[in-house]
């Protein structure tokens, strides 16, 4: 445990929010889908609304704490009712809440619109790995925690996690999807509950044995995105990450064809749909 981190932390916490905070990840990611940006927007909206309310409520409290203390020699007033005030501070919160519920509902409707996907992947949780099946392409594979992370995460492994690239966030087989395509993910489980969480896509859904939940996303930026299992599933719950690689369409096609060849899948026999 390095001491400098402690002092760093102490200073950071006391210092006013400055540019130094930039490399401390503080906030929700905007992500790379329309939905994830909507969610981020909603998050910021409620956050600022709460800040404004806090400013008002805490301001009022602090004012009272400063002004109406006995040490300033004040006499206590004895009022104890005001129907008018009560109505005001019941109604105003109701209005604020309605104002927040409307955009939230709109986003929900958008999230639930899962029509016309371009590609469907079934993700199955196992203790403790994920299995992915491309329903139309016939390809399937397991996705385990990468060896490097798995070695370092052993009790007293002697390996410094900081020396491992993408510690706990890397897997042996990435999920690949084409950019700007509506990808539907069917999520289920083979044993206990798991949850498929991909922060950059604004998606989290439980994997339930015997039931299938569905989500979709349309990633707009090629790149590698990382998430984790988000429902307690036993001892290695913290060690079954999710990695999705968003590829340009032609690159996706090439990689997919290679996988199909590797798994010996006869593409002519696949259903047209």
């Amino acid at each position: 445990m390095n001491m400098h981190r402690f002092w760093l932390a102490a200073v950071m916490l006391l210092a006013p929010a400055g540019s130094a905070l930039a490399d401390w990840e503080l906030n929700m990611r905007e992500g790379v889908t329309e939905i994830s940006r909507d969610i981020h927007g909603l998050h910021m909206l409620i956050f600022w609304v709460c800040c404004v309310i806090a400013l008002f409520v805490f301001g009022w409290m602090i004012l009272a704490l400063v002004l109406h203390r006995k040490s300033r020699g004040v006499e206590a007033a004895q009022f104890s009712h005001s129907t008018k005030a009560e109505i005001v501070w019941t109604l105003i919160p109701v209005l604020i809440l309605i104002a927040m519920a409307v955009p939230a509902t709109q986003t929900m409707l958008k999230i639930e619109d899962d029509r016309n996907p371009d590609i469907t992947i079934k993700a199955t949780g196992y203790q403790w790995k994920w299995e992915y099946e491309y329903l139309d392409e016939g390809v399937s594979f397991y996705s385990n925690l990468a060896r490097t992370s798995n070695d370092a995460r052993r009790l007293n492994s002697g390996i410094d996690p900081a020396s491992v690239e993408n510690y706990l966030l890397e897997v042996d087989n990435h999920v690949i999807v084409p950019v700007n395509k509506k990808v539907r993910v069917l999520i289920t489980s083979n044993d206990v509950l798991h949850a498929w969480w991909m922060p950059d896509f604004g998606i989290k859904k439980d994997a339930i044995p015997g039931y299938i939940n569905q989500v979709w996303f349309r990633a707009e930026e090629p790149g590698i995105y990382r998430g984790q299992c988000a429902e307690l599933c036993g001892q290695d719950h913290g060690f079954m990450p999710i990695v999705v690689e968003v590829l340009a369409q032609d690159e996706f096609n090439a990689r997919m064809a290679a996988m199909q060849a590797e798994q010996g899948i006869d593409t002519t026999k696949l259903a047209a749909n």
């Binding site: 409290m61 009272a64 203390r69 206590a76 007033a77 005030a85 501070w89 809440l97």
Partner: peptide, 30 residues
């Protein structure tokens, strides 16, 4: 469940405001 949950902020807010109003114009010691 989203709507009902949000509603709980209203009575809870009433409580917070009432406590603050109790302190307001009091003669507080700490």
């Amino acid at each position: 469940f989203m709507f009902t949950t949000m509603l709980i902020a209203v009575p809870t807010g009433v409580k917070v405001f009432n406590w603050t109003a109790t302190m307001w114009k009091g003669a507080m010691t700490f």
